[in-house]
Amino acid sequence: MTGTIEKQTPPQQIRFRDKKTMIIKCPYCGPRDVIEFTYQGDATRQRPDPASSDQTAWNAYVYDRTNPMGSHREFWLHAGGCRQHLIITRDMATHVISSVGFARDAVSSGREGDRP
């Protein structure tokens, strides 16, 4: 093969390359390297009513992802630390994290006798 293809580098990739690693500030453990965490998916999805048999709605819930270039709300698990599920708001282009909280506070608040 001869010749080279000139590639344009989008500005987002330049910014990402500047970041050597991704640090997530766990609300319990403090700042930790991303290797301690497991991505658990899009936290903006709304599950259809379990009694519903609307195949279009279920298909969208299971498969459709908007993949926005920018702010995204998502689940992470601090598997290599406190083992808590977290909800993180992360910029998909730059990996800058603007908020971190326990998922249970958002998902199961107010449920008495809940497991910690």
Partner: peptide, 18 residues
């Protein structure tokens, strides 16, 4: 990959890590 300085990891405190 955690901070072991006494400022970041005080006496008595615990950590879970890898």
């Amino acid at each position: 990959a955690i901070d072991f300085s006494e400022h970041g990891f005080p006496v008595g405190f615990g950590r879970a890590t890898l």
